[in-house]
Every structure is written in C-alpha cells, then in structure tokens.
C-alpha cells in the first residue's frame, strides 16, 4: 500500500499504520514525499514493513514496536526515540539524539549521526556505519552503541551500563567513561550486530570497547 503525503494528511497515515487491520494481512507499506515532516511513523506497534522515500523531520519512528521502518533519506532530531523493539534503518545521515532513551530493537544508520546519539538509552542497540558527534551515549543506561567511524568529544559522558564500541578515533572521553578490555562475549556481541546489519568488511577485533568506570553513579561521598 502506498501513501503519498502530498495527497494524504500525515495524521491519517500515522493513524492507519498505528491501527493495522490484521484481517487484510497487508505487510508492506510505502510513504512518498515525506518532505521533512515530523513524527512520521511514530507509535507503530505491528510487525509490518514501511519504506519512507525521502528526508524526514523530527522523531521519525519514535516509540516503535515490532515494525521494520526504512528511511531512504536523512532524518531529523530524535529518530526512533524511545524505540521499544523492531528495526529502524536510516539510509542517510541522522541529526542529533538518534535513538534517545530507546529500550530495545535495532537502529541502523548508514551515514553519520550527529551529537548525543544514543542519549539515555535503556537497552536499544544502535549501529552507525559512519561517525557520531559529541556527547554520544550521554547518561546511557543499557544497550549497545557500535560506531564504525569516529566519535566526537565527550563520548559516553556520565555513562551507566551501555557498552560502546568504536572502530575509528575517539576525540575525547566524557566523565567516567573509560576504555575497557575486550572479552569474548563482547567480540561475539559485535559479530552479531555486524551480521544483523549485513556489514561484512569489518572484523570485531578492529573495534575498541568503552564503558563506565562506575565511579560517578555509585554513591561516593567525594561526589556528593
């Protein structure tokens, strides 16, 4: 089924995709002419495939559950924010706060993601084929951020238990973020993510692992 946003109101499209008539058994949807609109495909709950043909605005695929959403273009602030499950694939670049507060599922960004990628995550896996901007992984609690390119300033600032893997250079580490020893379970996690994302030209051993030094979020009188 094809929705052309030049002809149909966005609210109607979102409403239709949020309330799938399962008797019809449609699985594949396409959205044309997104033209930078905000909140496209926010709040989807069913196991459907949606392809968005063009650039989108803020909060695309926010709160996603189960759906597989592909954006053939760039995305604005907060793509897949608070995502619960499913798969969101950005073929272009992502603006700031990609995957913010995400609980689960997989977010793949083919291009670069700008600042605060994976801020305050709670279990989502993010794979960025390009680089991430400053303060990525800020206060992030659980899940994984895998960066095939470089990371900007203050990576993993005030980090909780999210695992961060970076192949390229890290401009600087944020407060309480340190490089950690890579163990077999970490290499397996990287291998699994690379496989899921169809990335065949990289090896898990090329990545470095970063995580929390756990000196900031545990109560210490020095930090009071």
């Amino acid at each position: 089924m094809i929705f052309d946003l030049k002809k149909i109101n966005l609210r109607k499209v979102n409403s239709e995709l949020q309330n799938i008539d399962k008797k019809k058994n449609y699985k594949n949807y396409k959205i044309l002419n997104p033209e930078g609109n905000h909140a496209i495909c926010a709040g989807l709950q069913d196991d459907i495939n949606v392809n968005i043909e063009g650039h989108v605005g803020y909060y695309c695929a926010g709160m996603n559950q189960n759906a597989k959403i592909t954006i053939n273009g760039n995305v604005g602030t907060g793509v897949a924010e608070n995502m619960m499950s499913g798969f969101v694939h950005v073929k272009g670049n992502a603006s700031q706060s990609a995957g913010a507060t995400g609980h689960g599922g997989l977010l793949l960004i083919d291009g670069d993601a700008s600042s605060r990628c994976g801020i305050s995550m709670k279990g989502l896996d993010i794979v960025v084929k390009g680089s991430v901007g400053h303060m990525s992984g800020f206060m992030s609690q659980a899940g994984t951020i895998l960066v095939c390119g470089n990371a900007g300033e203050a990576l993993g600032d005030s980090l909780y238990e999210t695992e961060i893997y970076v192949k390229g250079k890290v401009k600087s580490l944020g407060a309480d973020c340190v490089e950690k020893q890579m163990e077999t379970k970490h290499l397996n996690k990287i291998k699994d993510l690379l496989n899921k994302c169809g990335i065949k030209n990289l090896q898990p051993s090329q990545f470095k692992r970063f995580g929390s030094a756990r000196k900031l979020y545990n109560f210490r009188v020095d930090n009071a």
């Binding site: 930078g36 609109n37 905000h38 650039h55 605005g57």
Partner: peptide
C-alpha cells in the same frame, strides 16, 4: 532550522545535505 523549510526548493532531493558542525 529544519529540513521541511527547504523541501520545496528545486532539486533539493539530490542536494548535498548536511548539518553544520558545532
């Protein structure tokens, strides 16, 4: 400020689109 303000410009879909770095 947002891409949607430029969506009407000619051939914008094939433009080089990027965010200015801080």
């Amino acid at each position: 400020s947002e891409f949607q303000a430029m969506a009407h410009l000619p051939k914008v879909s094939s433009a080089k689109i990027f965010e200015p770095e801080p």
